[in-house]
């Protein structure tokens, strides 16, 4: 009898251990709140714009999530985005066929990611410092090369890709692809294993360095993809594009319940985090506030997510302790 009464609160607590739940709750609440108070939110045009915004940040965030799952961090993704976007922009304005420019942009983005990966694995430098440095290096190289010029307009056949729902469709495909990869493939399990314990993975014979290099490469490719979609939508590109997006991407990942030290979390969570970004960003505009104030919301949702994480950890710890008491009959000494 007593067992049955005790199980009810425990079930409620068990909900807290679902890592994506806070993100899903914030997203649903803000969507319901906005559609009730601001009818403009429900218009097709607005929803399309929100979907596009979610796609640009979301694709970045999915790559970033993989990096964070391994226990690393990549601060250079937005700079990489600007670098590869500007390369494609320069080529298109110079008259190169746009599919070729697209391939070149992805190659540059992948190379940027690989540079991070090589510095981090081969030279064993801390990811936060390496990507802090490459953030500056990518951004400044492309500013110097382009003289901070604006490249526009692009061929219609390319620019048309950015309108409508194509960015969002690509985003969904990226999420599905990467989510299946982390959940269903050997590579994905290894990524999560490295984040759980790098030493244990290395001792079990996993090619830790090769996996990390590939993860930073994928984060770079995601940045390139995001750059191309953003260019197509805006129909212009310059070296300062997407500044601050590394923050939005990391915030999305953290809000989505991915543990910053790696090993726990999902791509879906990161995607939900990006959707929150897009919806709340839209809310600021609908309420006639300046977009710069978004920093306050970013700060608040990062904090909310971090509090959720602390709460979840406490619940899990107490569960672990309870289990321990049940097995050994005494509290685990701390």
């Amino acid at each position: 009898m007593s067992n049955r009464t005790a199980s009810r609160p425990r079930k409620i607590f068990a909900l807290f251990t679902i890592r994506e739940l806070p993100a899903l709750a914030i997203l649903l609440v803000s969507i319901v709140w906005l559609s009730l108070t601001r009818p403009a939110f429900r218009s097709i045009d607005n929803l399309t714009a929100v979907g596009q915004d979610a796609a640009f940040v979301g694709i970045l965030a999915c790559g970033e999530a993989l990096v964070i799952l391994t226990g690393g961090i990549d601060l250079s993704v937005a700079a990489n985005l600007a670098m590869s976007g500007c390369v494609a922009g320069m080529m298109m304005i110079a008259g190169v066929a746009w599919p070729l420019a697209v391939v070149a942009a992805l190659a540059v983005a992948g190379l940027g990611g690989l540079v991070n990966g090589v510095l981090i694995t081969y030279r064993r430098l801390p990811p936060i410092l390496v990507t802090l440095a490459t953030w500056f290096i990518f951004r400044s190289i492309i500013s110097i090369v382009t003289h901070s010029r604006n490249y526009a307009p692009f061929p219609n056949s390319f620019a048309n890709l950015g309108g409508g729902n194509l960015p969002f469709v690509v985003f969904v495909l990226v999420v599905i692809g990467l989510a299946l990869m982390t959940l269903r493939t050997r590579f994905g399990r290894r990524v999560i294993a490295i984040g759980g314990s790098e030493t244990a993975s290395e001792l079990s014979g996993l090619p830790v360095d090769a996996i990390k290099r590939r993860v930073y490469l994928i984060a770079g490719l995601c940045a390139g993809l995001s750059a191309l979609l953003m260019m197509a939508r805006n129909n212009n590109v310059e070296s300062s594009v997407a500044s601050g997006y590394e923050l939005h991407a990391i915030a999305a990942v953290v809000v989505g319940g991915v543990r910053l030290s790696g090993g726990e979390g999902t791509i879906l969570g990161a995607a939900l985090g990006a959707a929150i970004y897009a919806v709340l960003h839209d809310a600021l505009i609908l309420y006639g506030q300046r977009a710069e104030l978004y920093g306050l919301i970013t700060g608040a949702i990062i904090l909310a997510a971090a509090f959720g994480e602390v709460l979840r950890r406490r619940v899990e710890e107490s569960k672990y302790k309870a289990a321990n008491i049940a097995v050994t009959g005494e509290t685990a000494s701390k």
Binding site: L247, I250, A251, E292, L293, Y294, G295, L296, T298, G299, A300, I302, L303, A306
Partner: peptide, 10 residues
């Protein structure tokens, strides 16, 4: 990171 975002907007 949260303070980085919030203070600039503040």
């Amino acid at each position: 990171l949260a303070m980085y975002a919030a203070a600039r907007a503040g």
